[in-house]
C-alpha cells in the first residue's frame, strides 16, 4: 500500500533522479516527515545510493526524519522579529514545555520550529500556528496562544492585536 504512494510520487517526476528534492518534499508533505522505509524504496527505484539521500535529507533544514507533533508552532527568528524579542519568546516556550528549538513536546502536542524569516517584518514578532499568522506577539501572548492548543485539530481563532 505504502509503496504505491511513493511510486506515484516517483512517477510524477518521471523517475528523474535530478528531481530527488521535489520527490522528498512531496513525500514529506504526505507523511509529515521522511519515513526511512520509504527512503529505501526511493533509493532502489531511482538507483541513487541511500547514503546520498540521507546526505540531502540532513542538509536541508526543512526535511524531518522523525514525526512531528500534532500542531506546528513556527517562530520567526528573522532580524526584526529577533530585535523585537523573538529570542526571549522562544526561550520562554522552551522552558515552559521543556523542549529545544526544533523539538516536539513529549505528548506530541506541538513541534516548535524556528524559521529564519517569513518576510512579514512589519508585523514582527511573528508566530505561525498551524498556518495561521499571529503578529506582534509577546512572551505573554505567545504562551497564551500555545496553551490554547489541544490534542485535536485546532481551529486557531484567537485574535491578537496588530503590531506594526
Amino acid at each position: 500500500m505504502k509503496d504505491e504512494r511513493i511510486m506515484k510520487i516517483i512517477g510524477r517526476y518521471e523517475a528523474d533522479a535530478g528531481m530527488l528534492i521535489p520527490m522528498m518534499q512531496d513525500l514529506q508533505a504526505e507523511n509529515g516527515y521522511l519515513p526511512p522505509e520509504q527512503l529505501r524504496v526511493l533509493s532502489k527505484k531511482l538507483k541513487v545510493p541511500l547514503s546520498r539521500i540521507y546526505h540531502v535529507a540532513t542538509f536541508y533544514s526543512s526535511f524531518r526524519l522523525a514525526p512531528k507533533g500534532q500542531h506546528e508552532v513556527t517562530l520567526c527568528m528573522g532580524t526584526v522579529c529577533y530585535l523585537k524579542g523573538a529570542g526571549k519568546i522562544s526561550e520562554a516556550i522552551c522552558e515552559e514545555y521543556s523542549i529545544e528549538p526544533g523539538g516536539t513536546t513529549s505528548d506530541r502536542l506541538f513541534t516548535l520550529q524556528a524559521v529564519n524569516c517569513v518576510g512579514a517584518c512589519a508585523l514582527a514578532p511573528v508566530m505561525i500556528v498551524d498556518g495561521k499568522y499571529f503578529d506582534g506577539v509577546s512572551t505573554e501572548s505567545a504562551l497564551k496562544i500555545i496553551s490554547g492548543l489541544s490534542l485535536e485539530p485546532a481551529t486557531g481563532t484567537a485574535e491578537v492585536e496588530a503590531g506594526g
Binding site: 527568528m77 528573522g78 532580524t79 526584526v80 529577533y82 529564519n116 524569516c117 518576510g119 517584518c121
Partner: peptide, 12 residues
C-alpha cells in the same frame, strides 16, 4: 531564494 532575514522584496 530570498534568504536574508529581514528581507521580503522578492516575496512581495
Amino acid at each position: 531564494d530570498e534568504g536574508d532575514p529581514g528581507a521580503f522584496m522578492d516575496r512581495s
